[in-house]
Amino acid sequence: MPRITPDQAGGANRCAFLDMIGISEGTVTDPVTQDDGYDILVTGMNGPQRFASYADHPDILVTVNTSGLQSTAAGRYQLLHRYWVAYKAQLNLPDFSPVSQDLVALQQIRERGALPHIDAGNFAHAVLLCSNIWASLPGNGYGQHQNAVAMLQQAYVNAGGALAA
């Protein structure tokens, strides 16, 4: 499945930032993915699983841990179904395809005011602004594993992102 291009996203830095989020969320490197993380359900007690259709968000409730935490997170950016419903309408998206998932993630980043910082290469500040969206990013209080900024920055640079001088 094709994903958003740098021209559609507004630049290579934005695509690199999206790649970094996929790496941070663990979807890109998930062993069961066949589509670069766009086809992954939140990892639950039964291990990682894929969903089969991009027609719509799969809306599958997964039990994440023995404490009973449940989630509908799906796709490369682990979007919850309840947020998908709102963004699908807001952005007039036809499906849950990779391009649609990318557009939702970019909208979430835009809402946090991080796009100008990504464009300028102010990576650490952009990550901080987005930390309340993705629990794997450092700087939030979700109590889940957070990745180190240095590791995320390396993933961003490896994906073609440029840093401010």
Rank of each mutant, 00 (worst) to 15 (best):
residue 57 H to N: 09
residue 30 D to H: 07
residue 129 L to N: 02
residue 111 E to C: 04
residue 99 V to I: 15
residue 27 T to Y: 01
residue 111 E to T: 07
residue 48 P to R: 03
residue 83 Y to C: 02
residue 7 D to H: 05
residue 53 S to E: 15
residue 155 A to M: 04
residue 165 A to Y: 11
residue 116 P to C: 07
residue 139 G to K: 04
residue 57 H to L: 08
residue 28 V to Y: 08
residue 33 T to H: 04
residue 74 A to K: 03
residue 39 D to H: 00
residue 100 S to G: 08
residue 34 Q to I: 06
residue 19 D to M: 09
residue 67 S to W: 04
residue 143 G to T: 12
residue 30 D to P: 05
residue 24 S to W: 07
residue 149 V to P: 06
residue 162 A to T: 15
residue 108 Q to W: 01
residue 1 M to S: 04
residue 98 P to N: 04
residue 27 T to P: 05
residue 19 D to K: 06
residue 33 T to S: 12
residue 113 G to T: 04
residue 5 T to D: 04
residue 61 L to I: 15
residue 52 A to W: 00
residue 158 N to H: 00
residue 46 N to T: 11
residue 43 T to G: 01
residue 139 G to E: 03
residue 112 R to D: 03
residue 122 N to T: 00
residue 29 T to C: 03
residue 111 E to F: 02
residue 90 Q to A: 13
residue 151 M to E: 07
residue 68 G to Y: 13
residue 42 V to L: 10
residue 50 R to N: 13
residue 58 P to H: 05
residue 147 N to D: 11
residue 106 L to C: 09
residue 60 I to E: 15
residue 103 L to S: 12
residue 146 Q to W: 02
residue 76 R to T: 00
residue 133 I to E: 14
residue 142 Y to Q: 09
residue 69 L to D: 13
residue 43 T to P: 00
residue 146 Q to S: 13
residue 137 L to F: 15
residue 72 T to Q: 14
residue 17 F to Q: 07
residue 60 I to R: 15
residue 146 Q to G: 12
residue 79 L to P: 02
residue 156 Y to E: 08
residue 130 C to Y: 04
residue 165 A to W: 14
residue 1 M to Y: 02
residue 52 A to D: 11
residue 54 Y to F: 15
residue 34 Q to L: 06
residue 24 S to V: 15
residue 132 N to S: 14
residue 5 T to K: 09
residue 96 F to D: 00
residue 145 H to R: 05
residue 48 P to W: 07
residue 77 Y to L: 01
residue 124 A to I: 00
residue 22 G to C: 09
residue 8 Q to W: 02
residue 137 L to H: 05
residue 161 G to V: 08
residue 93 L to P: 11
residue 25 E to C: 10
residue 163 L to G: 10
residue 160 G to D: 12
residue 51 F to V: 03
residue 130 C to Q: 01
residue 121 G to N: 10
residue 159 A to I: 05
residue 11 G to K: 10
residue 131 S to G: 02
residue 66 T to F: 06
residue 39 D to T: 08
residue 72 T to V: 11
residue 84 W to E: 01
residue 86 A to D: 03
residue 92 N to L: 04
